[in-house]
Design a protein around this nucleic acid. Structure first.
Length: 419
DNA sequence: TCTGGGGTCCTAGGACCC
DNA sequence: TCTGGGGTCCTAGGACCC
């Protein structure tokens, strides 16, 4: 068996831990720049607020229904994510962290356990120890565990935990389960399947494997097998190093000036280099992109990107910033108002064992010592101690008018308590 | 006025080899 | 009229996930 623990409306639930007055009321968490809705309480979902809806289009509905909104507070959510994971780790031999709000538990080889009691117990333990409501589904495959966890959200009677394993029960659930809600069936495939009369997970399961393979490739077959209770998706308890690392942002207002844009790109490059060092990797390719506001169709539209192969793989902030800035000047077009830019590192390999040119050995050794020192200092100062001069002194422009305090991670932001 | 930020894997087609 | 039969590697784009 596999279990999936899925935090309910995760970002909203984090905010509610410190604002219990908001339990039972509509709450929305917004993306960076207060751009889109990225988390909604059940009450907000009931009002018709969709994932990804732009905030400015929601203002009416928010005002009419006194919806509480928050700018995203990733420091807070990351901390709660860590707390929930630590509860999950005690409950299973292995866990696979799938995202900030979900983790799979490997229950293979776990015997003499009533999985229904286990699921409900784990859910209530998470709630008690972290304040976050968590749905726990247990089933023979990851895809079915996802569905079991989803059921908990619709049926409060399940008390946060659902063990789904009898063939007859699975079929009964899949008959009512919309095809587009199945893990692995995306927004492209779902309409195609519906057009062929396949509207439920059970309809999909009844097709032949060969039919699925022809239309949806190997990934479709994996989903099909998983729905039949045959595990087809691996379980990875150790996080592999990333194969690509991207840092990008949308800006609060358009940037026209190359110098100003260059500072932002230098910051993205520096963040990328830091993440490379964090996972002990170097990259051999660097992509820089910059794009104008795609919604302003009347303006000049520019979406430039360039990928440079690096002669020598590197994780040095100095090298990566220099290359990124040079790349940006290649794609930059005068007169365009840039709304978003980013840096992507790819062709990532472990730093250990990479071959360095003898002519660069000295350069590399110096950079490595310097980067180690910078990382140490920044760790102690909370991130912004030392930067490369070309990053400039300004912060990346952002609007976050509704952010809550960093309750659990910052001494400076604790609300004052009046005694 | 105002529209997020990350990732992974697969596949088809082109360039090249004999 | 008609033009072999294998390979490999790389890349861009698609599809999916949160």
């Amino acid at each position: 068996m596999f279990a999936l623990a899925d935090c309910n409306n995760f970002f909203v639930s984090c905010e509610r831990v410190f604002r219990p007055d908001l339990i039972g009321r509509p709450v929305v968490v917004l993306s960076r720049n207060d751009g889109c809705a990225i988390a909604r309480s059940n009450e907000a979902k009931a009002l018709g607020i969709k994932m990804g809806d732009p905030y400015f289009k929601l203002k009416d509905i928010i005002a009419r229904n006194s919806v509480t909104i928050f700018s995203s507070n990733m420091a807070l959510y990351a901390d709660f994510s860590r707390r929930v994971r630590s509860v999950l780790r005690e409950a299973a031999p292995q866990i696979e962290v799938y995202s900030i709000d979900e983790a799979f538990l490997d229950m293979r080889g776990v015997a003499n356990v009533d999985f229904d009691t286990f699921a409900k117990g784990l859910s209530s333990r998470c709630q008690r120890l972290t304040g976050i409501p968590v749905s726990v589904g247990v089933a023979p495959t990851k895809t079915l565990a996802k569905i079991a966890a989803e059921l908990c959200k619709s049926y409060p009677k399940l008390q946060g935990g659902c063990f789904m394993h009898r063939a007859a029960d699975i079929e009964k659930v899949l008959r009512k389960y919309p095809i587009e809600d199945v893990w692995g069936i995306g927004r492209r495939s779902a309409p195609r399947l519906r057009a062929q009369g396949i509207t439920s997970a059970q309809d999909f399961r009844m097709q032949s494997e060969d039919w699925v393979r022809r239309r949806m490739g190997i990934n479709g077959v994996r989903t099909w097998r998983e729905l039949h209770g045959i595990p087809a998706i691996g379980f990875d308890s150790v996080a592999e190093p990333h194969k690509s690392i991207c840092n990008s942002r949308s800006f609060a207002t358009e940037i026209y000036d190359l110098g100003e844009l260059s500072e932002q790109v230098a910051k993205f490059a520096a963040m990328t280099a830091e993440k490379l060092r964090e996972q002990g990797s170097v990259c051999s390719r660097l992509t820089v992109f910059a794009a104008t506001n795609r919604f302003h169709t009347a303006d000049i539209q520019q979406c430039g990107h360039i990928t440079l192969p690096l002669i020598e793989p590197t994780d040095s902030t100095i090298d990566i910033v220099r290359i990124a800035r040079a790349a940006l000047s290649e794609v930059y077009v005068r007169g365009a108002g840039y709304k978003k830019a980013g840096v992507i590192a790819s062709d990532i390999i472990p730093r250990e064992g990479t071959i360095v040119s003898m002519f660069n050995a000295e350069h590399n050794a110096r950079h490595q010592r310097l980067m180690t020192a910078i990382d140490d200092i920044n760790r102690h100062t909370g991130g912004s101690g030392i930067a490369i001069a070309s990053e400039g002194m300004s912060e990346i422009k952002a609007n976050s008018r509704h952010r809550s305090p960093r309750y659990t991670t910052s001494w400076d932001e604790l609300p004052t308590v009046k005694l």
